[in-house]
Design a binder for these strands. Structure first.
Length: 645
DNA sequence: TGGGGATTT
């Protein structure tokens, strides 16, 4: 079972969080390395933005790339695709990996004049890296630098301009844009790529683009000026196409042949409990039994890569010396008699297509397990907390969220729970109508509870600290715990610990970090994840202007009067409180404080938490001390009647 | 004293 779960994980792609895995180490973008390096320098070097663009060189590269483009399977279908989108408002395209659909289709449409300044082609991606790397590639093919004709927009990084005709963006980004531009008037075509992944964001976009298309069509029928049709393209890698087509009332489904090279798939005959061991064995089986060729291994995470690398090296030394020589450079071809082994996270699997990849695929699980994984892929919308999605829909004017046209409806009780939560946060009134407070909450790129905290921070005069805490909670962890130095890391963490709990502890770390100006050595010594701390600062910088715009000054600070801050936090997390149990209390769920919390074993009377994890039993994480009279105060106010439900 | 799959605004 454990191995099945891990394999399932490996199907999804992942951004190399720590940037520990330099993409160059693992990805062979082109057969022609020198050309590739040239392109890297010219195309994606930001410094060049400020230098004089060497147009002739860019055009030369684009001309060279044209022959690569023409080899893509999709090139043969160019006219068919163009005709289909000309003749239909909505089409569905199935294209397997390697078809080139994500890079070529936007270009086809641009080339026939379907994009104009201020009304461009949008193509959404579930992941930031994909949006950025696709845009960079297409910019090269078009013969420009990024941010002009071809751009991308992801959180914290907008590389678009007025002249942008093709815009790659994350699905989350387009969702935010809807708040400003509900009819998507800035776009002539919206392409929803990787639709088969069924992220909750893409699922909501389905409904919203369909709605925008219908309204724009009606406006044209009513002879309103300044409106153009919205074309929609759904792109998927699987055969779910009919479902998408039905949803959009279209029958136009195009299938693009996939891989440029045949791939033979092998599954194991028996389930494997240890996928690392299985990968090791398979590697050497291939190495000793198969004809020359490189081996590319996809693994779920960085840690696995390090472990397997060590295993392969250790095991390799037991072979006769001529059998295996260690190579460190991905771009160098393996010398005769040796074989190159590339270990990668699955980021490479979906973001980049490796050329010349004819060969064999060894799946370290059985055919049966593979089928089960496919079936088990429940759309995210059926499993996730819907509070922020529902608030966004309400802010977009979808009053009846039960009747929204979902591709797959979320469970009814999940919807009611979200509505109830939003009501408790005062984002909705008792009729389910969005309140002014709710509207302001929706503007923030945050979970509703956190947005509520920010809005409450004005009255309690602790906005600076509220912003900090919310930012600190928006990354996985600001701590860095190497496996081999766990005890040392735990011990070091104690010097930041606050008797008030984990949130104030986080604040102490941030203050320490800022005092040191983010010094790398300080981070290492204190087991602080510098990269995540940088994201914390990015989030802070994003939240500050959003607060200021609605009259909440980020400079207002509570100093060390943390009572005010915690009472402010209670506005978002009043439901997440727990009282010490003499066992005759009204609390029904029994939860413990997670051992990673500084409040563990402190036995305080009442606490607030921002996260509940269900592992061996329910544990509260990010725990903060609260006073029981604060809870009584809040419960006796407007919350009392609601809390009984 | 426990457990760690991934995304995104």
């Amino acid at each position: 079972m454990a191995s099945l779960k891990k394999s399932q994980i490996s199907e999804k792609s992942k951004e190399s969080k720590q940037s520990k895995i330099p993409i160059k180490r693992t990805i062979d973008f082109d057969d022609n390395n020198t050309l590739h390096q040239k392109i890297e320098k010219l195309g994606s070097n930001k410094k060049l933005k400020h230098e004089k663009d060497d147009q002739t060189k860019l055009i030369q590269i684009a001309t060279n790339l044209k022959s690569f483009r023409k080899e893509l399977p999709i090139w043969k279908e160019r006219n068919l695709i163009i005709d289909s989108i000309r003749n239909n408002d909505t089409i569905v395209i199935i294209g397997e990996m390697g078809s080139g659909k994500s890079t070529q289709i936007p270009q086809f449409l641009m080339e026939i004049g379907m994009a104009s300044k201020g009304c461009c082609i949008a193509i959404t991606q579930p992941r930031r890296v994909a949006a950025m790397s696709l845009a960079k590639r297409v910019a090269q093919e078009v013969g420009t630098t990024i941010g002009h004709k071809v751009g991308y927009s992801v959180r914290f990084d907008d590389a678009t301009s007025r002249s942008t005709l093709i815009k790659y963006l994350t699905d989350g980004m387009l969702l935010r844009e809807l708040l400003m531009d509900p009819l998507l008037k800035n776009y002539s075509v919206v392409i929803l790529d990787e639709a088969h992944e069924r992220t909750v964001r893409t699922d909501i976009l389905f409904g919203m683009v369909k709605r925008a298309q219908a309204i724009r069509s009606k406006m044209i029928d009513d002879s309103q000026k300044g409106v153009s049709l919205l074309k929609i393209i759904i792109m998927s890698a699987t055969l779910d196409a009919k479902k998408f087509a039905n949803y959009f009332n279209t029958s136009t489904i195009l299938s693009i042949p996939g891989r440029q090279f045949p791939v033979t798939v092998h599954n194991t005959l028996e389930p494997q409990d240890d996928y690392l061991d299985a990968a090791l064995i398979t590697t050497f089986q291939i190495h000793t039994e198969q004809p020359p060729g490189d081996i590319l291994i996809f693994l779920p995470g960085q840690e696995d890569i390090e472990t397997l690398e060590k295993l392969i090296n250790d095991y390799g030394t037991t072979l006769p010396p001529d059998k295996l020589k260690q190579q460190t450079k991905v771009f160098d071809p393996a010398p005769p008699g040796s074989r190159k082994v590339i270990l990668a996270t699955n980021i490479a699997e979906t973001s980049i297509t490796i050329r010349g990849a004819a060969g064999f695929c060894y799946r370290l699980y059985t055919e049966e397990e593979f089928q089960k994984m496919e079936e088990d892929t429940v759309p995210e919308i059926k499993r996730c907390n819907l509070a922020s999605v529902i608030l966004l829909l309400k802010a977009l004017g979808i009053d009846n969220v039960l009747d929204f046209e979902y591709l797959d409806s979320p469970p009814r009780n999940s919807l009611t729970r979200a509505l109830e939560q939003l009501y408790l946060l005062k984002a909705l009134d008792n009729k389910g109508i969005i309140t002014d407070l709710g509207r302001r909450m929706a503007e923030f790129p945050l979970e509703p509870a956190f947005a509520r905290v920010l809005l409450a921070s004005k009255e309690l005069a602790c906005t600076r600290e509220a912003i900090s805490i919310i930012s600190l909670l928006s990354v996985d962890s600001i701590f860095f715990t190497p496996q081999d130095k766990r005890d040392q890391a735990t011990e070091t963490k104690k010097k930041f610990a606050s008797p008030l709990g984990d949130l104030i502890t986080l604040l102490n770390v941030l203050h320490g970090y800022q005092d040191q100006n983010g010094n790398a050595q300080w981070c290492r010594q204190n087991f602080i994840n510098k990269r995540n701390m940088k994201i914390v600062l990015d989030v802070q910088n994003q939240l500050i202007p959003l607060c200021n715009r609605i009259g909440i000054s980020n400079t207002v600070s509570c100093g060390i009067d943390y009572d005010r801050l915690i009472r402010c936090l209670l506005n978002g997390f009043i439901r997440n409180t727990a009282m010490l149990q003499p066992n005759n209390t009204y609390k029904t769920i029994c939860v413990s404080i997670h051992p990673s919390s500084v409040m563990c074993n402190k036995k305080v009377e009442a606490v607030m938490y921002t996260e509940l994890v269900l592992t061996s039993r329910p544990y509260m994480k990010y725990v903060t001390l609260v006073q029981t009279n604060w809870l009584q105060e809040m419960m006796s106010s407007s919350y009392s009647s609601n809390l009984e439900t």
